[in-house]
């Protein structure tokens, strides 16, 4: 096992989690490859995200628009903004083709807004493209444990 690579990738996705929890969205957008996709599927088994209905299937434009929506104050469901704290663990390298590393981990996320605390548990898979001594996100797939259930609104970026 390449512990150094695993640590490097884990540190990168921990940074991504920290940026989202602290609403540092400009820095978050800068972590991405322009062609990267951010996906929150419904179907736990699908890999054909383009031809399937998802909760989110964002290219660069939609990521930027999503951030604008969350920060504009125009959306009644994001005022007040929910606060989130997420914890990543159980990191495993699934692949490395020299260009990109595939990392899977677990994400436990708590969300608090108005008087309600909610929890979402997810499997998250990142495809991280090598960029100098760091990475850029080529793909992030957040598989919510209860994705097939009736959810409440998710007014942040899981």
């Amino acid at each position: 096992m390449n512990i150094e690579l695993l640590n490097q990738a884990a540190a990168f996705v921990s940074l991504e989690a920290d940026l989202l929890d602290h609403s540092e969205y400009t820095e978050w957008l800068n972590l991405w490859e322009e062609s990267g996709t951010y996906i929150v599927p419904i179907d736990p088994n699908t890999t054909d995200f383009a031809n399937t209905l998802n909760y989110a299937h964002d290219d660069a434009t939609m990521r930027r628009l999503r951030v604008e929506r969350l920060t504009s104050g125009e959306s009644v469901s994001t005022v007040p903004a929910p606060r989130t704290i997420r914890s990543l663990s159980r990191f495993r390298l699934l692949g490395d083709d020299g260009q990109a590393v595939t990392l899977r981990c677990t994400q436990i996320l708590g969300e608090f807004r108005k008087d309600v605390l909610k929890h979402y548990t997810a499997d998250v898979t990142f495809v991280l493209k090598r960029a100098g001594d760091s990475f850029r996100i080529q793909q992030k797939v957040v598989r919510l444990l209860n994705s097939t259930d009736a959810l409440a609104c998710i007014a942040y970026i899981p």
Binding site: Y55, H57, S77, C153
Partner: peptide, 27 residues
């Protein structure tokens, strides 16, 4: 497929718990 993908992306844009419309309706 291209037309159906467009329909799915339009649906995701507005609808559902992560859509740009539904959460505000629900609120």
């Amino acid at each position: 497929a291209a037309a159906n993908q467009a329909r799915l992306r339009l649906h995701e844009h507005f609808q559902g718990p992560m859509g740009f419309g539904t959460p505000d309706d629900a609120e």
